[in-house]
Amino acid sequence: MIDVNTCVLGGAMIQVSVVGEIDMGTAPRLDDALMAAVGQEAAMGVQVDFSGVTFCDSTGIASLERAYAAATQRSAPFRLVNVQPAVARVLAIVGILQALTDSE
């Protein structure tokens, strides 16, 4: 199970905060929230807070990639923040950590 909450930060940046484990059962909820945030006309960008995410499988990674691509198409920033080390390692192995976080 995951909890996904969305709020507007200063400068019309949308923050999507996620808590829990992301797998094939919970990824659709993440996907819906991310695509809704990216699709908001007034949004100047999307920040995804992963501080509470303890696991992310390939379905969660695919959700992140779809949202990142959609944001890039709109020329809107999309950034993953507060990624836990175990999740960051998986994202680094598949080669998307740097693109999503601007880190090595």
Rank of each mutant, 00 (worst) to 15 (best):
G45M: 01
A70V: 03
L91M: 09
G45C: 01
D57P: 07
A42P: 03
V90W: 02
T6L: 03
V53E: 09
A36H: 12
T6Y: 02
E21G: 12
I22Q: 05
V81C: 12
D23A: 09
R29E: 14
G20W: 02
F78A: 00
G60E: 02
V53Q: 01
D57Y: 02
G95H: 03
F50Q: 00
G25Q: 09
A67S: 13
A33H: 01
T54P: 01
Q73Y: 07
V83C: 13
D57N: 08
D49T: 07
C56R: 00
A27K: 00
R89P: 06
G20P: 11
I22R: 03
A27R: 00
L80V: 08
R74M: 05
R66M: 08
L64I: 04
F50V: 00
A12I: 03
L97H: 12
I22H: 10
L34N: 00
M44W: 07
M35Q: 13
E65C: 15
V53I: 06
T101P: 10
Q98S: 15
V18M: 10
Q47K: 10
N82Y: 07
D3S: 14
Q47W: 05
Y68Q: 06
V18T: 07
R79D: 12
D102I: 02
L34P: 00
C56T: 02
T6H: 03
E104M: 05
C56G: 06
L9K: 13
L97A: 13
Q98V: 06
G39F: 01
V8D: 14
L64F: 07
P77L: 04
V46P: 01
A69Y: 02
V94L: 08
R29Y: 13
A12Y: 14
N82K: 12
A86N: 15
I14G: 03
S58F: 04
I93G: 05
M24S: 11
Q15T: 08
G95N: 01
R79L: 07
V38W: 04
L9S: 13
F78W: 04
S75E: 11
Q84S: 11
A76G: 04
A36T: 10
A69H: 14
A12T: 09
